[in-house]
Amino acid sequence: MLNNKICIVTGGAQGIGRCIVETFAQQGALKVYACDMNIEAMRDLEEQYSNVSAKELNVCDRKGIQALIETLKAEHGKIDVLVNNAGITRDNLLDRMSEDDWDMVINVNLKGVFNMTQAVAPLMIENGVGSIITMSSVVGTDGNVGQTNYAATKGGVITMTKGWAKEFSRKGAQVRANCVAPGFIETPMTIELPEKVLNFMKGKTPLGRMGKPEDIANGVLFLASDNSNFITGQTLKIDGGLVI
């Protein structure tokens, strides 16, 4: 599905991001650049897949991002797919949320997406084709208690994406921008939650289970591939019916 495509996945060291990297590699991408601050956690991906390259990257580091994009442009002349997956949480009720926790989540989850997309989009537009997929959340569409900062970023990337879908195609370029909004997903972070909490999550989901990283990766794969070449400006909810 991704034959001859050059792909970038941020937050590729663990969880959903790691699963996306593996899925892209298995689906024939020419090269998948797995980007994360924890490069050592991605070494085994390089060993397992000849078409995966691990890159140490902080999405808040604009100079580092530009250096990476310039290198990839020199090597390949193109970037076909960008997956903005890197993100953090610093949850708390509004009256207890510190300014530092607000700023940190905004910088990584919202400005980090801006930084990456601003660096990659011009090359895609120049080549006339590309797919940008940004990880949002059902929290970004419906909110959640104790996640003022996180919800703001995940709602923000949806509206940025809608604007980009219009902006990038103005002169005829087939550059698409979409979001994926996961529900409750089994990740290294969630599996450590108390069983009572996990059962609550499952009970709220009509399909009666938590999603797996593969469920999200398959949706991202579809939006990255040419099978979705008439889809742009959309948010794909992959949540087992949690938000209907």
Rank of each mutant, 00 (worst) to 15 (best):
L2N: 07
L2I: 05
N3A: 10
N3H: 10
N4S: 14
C7S: 02
T10M: 01
T10F: 00
G11R: 00
A13Q: 13
A13D: 09
Q14Y: 00
I16R: 05
R18F: 00
I20W: 08
I20Y: 02
V21D: 04
A29G: 13
A29T: 13
K31C: 11
C35H: 04
D36E: 12
D36C: 03
A41N: 15
R43Q: 14
S50T: 05
K55Q: 13
E56Q: 15
E56H: 07
L57M: 08
N58R: 01
V59R: 06
V59W: 00
V59G: 01
C60R: 03
A67G: 10
A67N: 11
E70L: 11
A74M: 06
E75S: 15
H76D: 13
K78Q: 15
K78W: 12
I79C: 14
I79N: 15
V81Y: 08
L82D: 14
L82C: 11
V83M: 10
N84S: 05
D95G: 01
W102L: 12
W102E: 06
V113H: 05
M116L: 15
T117Y: 09
Q118N: 11
A121R: 12
A121C: 12
M124D: 14
S131W: 11
I132A: 11
T134F: 00
M135L: 14
M135V: 05
S136P: 06
S136A: 12
S137F: 11
V139I: 13
G140V: 10
G140N: 09
T141L: 14
D142G: 00
G143L: 08
G143H: 12
V145A: 11
G146K: 11
Q147Y: 03
N149C: 04
Y150I: 02
A151H: 10
A152C: 12
A152N: 12
T153N: 07
V157D: 03
V157W: 03
I158T: 03
G163L: 07
A165T: 11
K166L: 13
K166I: 14
E167K: 08
K171W: 07
G172A: 04
A173V: 10
A177E: 07
V180Q: 02
P182K: 09
I185M: 02
E192A: 15
E192P: 06
E192D: 13
N199I: 08
K204A: 06
T205R: 02
P206C: 09
L207F: 05
K212D: 00
E214T: 04
D215L: 07
I216E: 02
A217T: 03
N218W: 12
F222Y: 15
L223Q: 06
L223N: 04
S225T: 08
N227Y: 03
S228F: 03
S228Y: 03
N229R: 09
N229K: 10
F230S: 04
T235K: 02
L236D: 07
K237R: 15
I238N: 01
G241E: 10
G241C: 10
L242C: 04
